[in-house]
C-alpha cells in the first residue's frame, strides 16, 4: 500500500501544475490609457510548456491578493514572452498595475479555446472590438497580418467609450495606414476635439465593405455589444456560424473544475471562451443563465 501512495505523490506533482503558478518577471509595465496598462512578462526559469494561441487567457497572480483571468494581448509568436493588457477595476488588477520592472508575477495557463485564425484562412476577416475587447483580438490581428496573403479583406472596427479610452491608439493608426487593412474607430460620446466617428460600433458594419458569404467575424467586447454586432452582421448576410464571440464569466480555476464560469452546459474557461454565435445565441438570451 505504501508503494502505491508514493507512486501517487509523483502523480500529484505531475498533474498539479495546473493549479500552481509559474513565476514570470515583469519586463515592462506600460500605461495604455487612464485605467488600462500592459504587462510584458518573461519566464523566470522554465516557461509554460504549451505554446499559446490568440484568444486564450492566463490566470495572473498578484502576491497575496489573488488571481484574475486575463487574455493574452501580445504576439503569440514571441513565445515564451507574454503580453497582457489589463484594466484596473478590482483589487487584483490594481495590485498588478503597481508591479514594477523586475517584480514577480504568477502565471497559470494558457487556457481556453482560441480564435479560429487558421481555420478561417481564405476568407474576408472582420474583427469587431468594443472597449478592452480589443486586447484579446490583438494576437489574432498579429497572426492574420503575419500571414496576410492567406486572407481576403481584413477589416477592424473598434468602438470605445470616449476618445481618451481608445486602446492601442498608435497601433491602430499604424494599421490604418496599411493599404491591405481597413480600420475604423467610433466612440460613444465626445466633445468637438474628436474628428472621428461618434456612434455605436454595429453602425460601422452597415457600411463596411466585405463579402458576407465568405466572411469570418471575430467579435469581442461587452456581451450586449456582441449581441448587437452579431445582429448587424446577420443583417449584412454573415451567417451565425461564421461569427465568433468571446464570452466572459467568473473564472476561478481556469480548468473547468470550480464551476464558477458555468453557463448552461458549458464551462466557459475550458469549453470557450470563443464560440460561434450560433452555439450561444439562444443561451445568452436566457435571463440570469
Amino acid at each position: 500500500m505504501e508503494t502505491t501512495i508514493e507512486h501517487n505523490c509523483e502523480q500529484v506533482v505531475n498533474n498539479n501544475h495546473t493549479m500552481t503558478p509559474t513565476i514570470y518577471r515583469v519586463e515592462k509595465n506600460r500605461r495604455d490609457t487612464h485605467d488600462t496598462f500592459t504587462l510584458h512578462l518573461s519566464p523566470e526559469d522554465q516557461p509554460l510548456e504549451t505554446v499559446y494561441e490568440p484568444g486564450q487567457f492566463n490566470m495572473l497572480y498578484a502576491f497575496g491578493v489573488g488571481e484574475v483571468p486575463i487574455s493574452i494581448s501580445g504576439d503569440t509568436t514571441e513565445w515564451p514572452k507574454l503580453v497582457h493588457t489589463i484594466r484596473a477595476v478590482g483589487s487584483v488588477t490594481n495590485a498588478l498595475q503597481s508591479l514594477a520592472t523586475g517584480d514577480s508575477i504568477g502565471v497559470r495557463g494558457p487556457y481556453g479555446k482560441p480564435w479560429p485564425v487558421e481555420a478561417t484562412k481564405g476568407k474576408d476577416i472582420i474583427l469587431v472590438a468594443g472597449g478592452i475587447g480589443l486586447a484579446p483580438l490583438r494576437p489574432a490581428i498579429y497572426q492574420i497580418l503575419h500571414n496576410r496573403e492567406s486572407y481576403g479583406k481584413v477589416i477592424l472596427l473598434y468602438g470605445s467609450r470616449r476618445p481618451l479610452d481608445i486602446l492601442f491608439r498608435k497601433e491602430l493608426e499604424k494599421w490604418r495606414s496599411r493599404l491591405d487593412m481597413f480600420v475604423d474607430v467610433t466612440v460613444d460620446s465626445s466633445d468637438r476635439n474628436w474628428n472621428g466617428n461618434v456612434g455605436v460600433v454595429p453602425r460601422l458594419i452597415d457600411t463596411a465593405n466585405f463579402d458576407p458569404i465568405d466572411t469570418a467575424a471575430f467579435v469581442c467586447g461587452p456581451e450586449v455589444m456582441m449581441r448587437f454586432t452579431a445582429m448587424a452582421l446577420n443583417k449584412r448576410g454573415v451567417s451565425s456560424d461564421n461569427i465568433y464571440v468571446s464570452l466572459e464569466r467568473n473564472m476561478k480555476c481556469g480548468v473547468g473544475l470550480c464551476g464558477h464560469c458555468q453557463m448552461s452546459n458549458q464551462f466557459i474557461c475550458k469549453d470557450g471562451p470563443v464560440y460561434t454565435y450560433s452555439q450561444v445565441r439562444e443561451t445568452v438570451l436566457i435571463r440570469e443563465i
Binding site: 485605467d35 477595476v89 467609450r161 460613444d188 455605436v200 467586447g221 448587437f228
Partner: peptide
C-alpha cells in the same frame, strides 16, 4: 433609436 438604446447602457463603462 436602437443605437441610442445601446449607448444608454454605457457598456464600456466601469459599471461602478
Amino acid at each position: 433609436l436602437e443605437s441610442m438604446r445601446l449607448r444608454l447602457l454605457d457598456i464600456y463603462g466601469n459599471n461602478d
